[in-house]
Design a protein around this nucleic acid. Structure first.
Lengths: 210, 210
DNA sequence: GACAGCATGTAATGAGTTACATGATTAA
DNA sequence: TTAATCATGTAACTCATTACATGCTGTC
């Protein structure tokens, strides 16, 4: 029985309540999408495997002539999920960031391409910023679907919101830096870059001290 | 001719200077690993495809009886790379974060499992923090292999360092929050969570105002 | 009568990973 | 002479993605 992390993501959702795959796909899109993105086709495929392993159960219902399939967790599923949650995390966080690769390779192209890449990043981040904000205001209003889990959700939310804010702030200040380059000579530009390296080095020292 | 982003990552490195794949693998491990992670086997496979497309060239050298294969970019490769760099970025940044999924599902397990997951995250992040710090001090010392690209590299570095600092700060404060839970009643815990949501909502409003 | 949203998939493909294998060189 | 590092891959696999395809239901 080989389950993937995706399997446990779905199984975990089934432990919260039963879902149709359509609902679950929507839920994943709103909630875990920013730290565990999966294609919809996966969301539809996984539960069948879970059923095959006896970890989930299917119930057929219908709305008029349209069928809907409701999946719920079984006792075996709950046990397996608990086992997994007690396990040590397999993989550290990974980031995949094509835009940053373009910044990295920017000396090979033009400054305008660099600014374009940074602006494109801002567009992508602004979507995340909005999504995060939407979820946040649901919790503040007390209307979130899992309001009773507000404490743990606030931890996840704190990360996601901080991350999105950081990405946007970084892109903004970087665009400003690049736009200031034409006014600086080589020496001044280099010195300005060194300020960045040094400020993070200072932060690292503070961290080690604490 | 279908090239992947990985192809362009390699091609971009070849545009900086010729490399053996061994050197390049090491370079990727130190530099782009945190925003564009790829298995070593990929790094060895890609250049052959590039050669097949006429974008790179191989030269055989030898150190004693040991062969080394040096890859360099061709004019066609440089042109193709320029074309790609002018193109609009295909994919936004994505994060894959199993640890955060465990936090998300924490209500299904124990508080100690939650703290374990957060501590595991800190371990993973501390590696990144060290790696970033190592690279940063090379630039500060003026001994970095691509010192002449310090300006653009400082942009990439700024993101990576900020990100690692954020992740560590977040994990720390979250552990502290969870550890304070036993001293609070339900009401107080909920209120404490709401403070998090509200503080990011305030940040969002400021952002919209600006 | 049309369109947005509900609901569920399949087929083809592929990019990338894991695990392994091999051997030369150099510094301790 | 042992270990680290230089150097280069292959084979098998698998997880996941892209791109459809289909049809019902409720609402404007």
């Amino acid at each position: 029985m080989k389950l993937t992390t995706t399997s446990y993501a779905i199984l975990g959702h089934l432990a919260l309540r039963p879902w149709t795959m359509y609902e679950l796909a929507a839920q994943m899109r709103n909630n875990v999408h920013y730290f565990f993105p999966r294609a919809e086709s996966q969301v539809y495929a996984e539960p069948k495997r879970l059923v095959g392993h006896g970890l989930a159960r299917v119930d057929k219902e219908s709305v008029g002539r349209r069928a809907r399939t409701i999946y719920s967790i079984t006792d075996a599923g709950r046990a397996e999920l608990e086992r997994w949650l007690a396990e040590r995390t397999a993989k550290g966080p990974t980031l995949e960031f094509e835009g940053l690769l373009r910044v990295f390779l920017a000396p090979l192209s033009s400054e305008s391409a660099l600014v374009d890449a940074l602006n494109r990043i801002r567009d992508d981040v602004s979507e995340m910023l909005e999504a995060v904000d939407r979820v946040g205001s649901e919790y503040v209003a007390g209307t979130a679907p899992f309001q009773r889990h507000a404490m743990t959700r606030s931890i996840v939310y704190d990360f996601l919101a901080s991350y999105a804010e950081l990405a946007d702030d970084w892109a903004r200040r970087s665009i400003a830096r690049v736009e200031a380059w034409p006014e600086l000579d080589d020496e001044a530009r280099h010195e300005e870059a060194m300020r960045i390296f040094r400020s993070h080095a200072r932060a690292a020292r503070r961290r080690r001290g604490a």
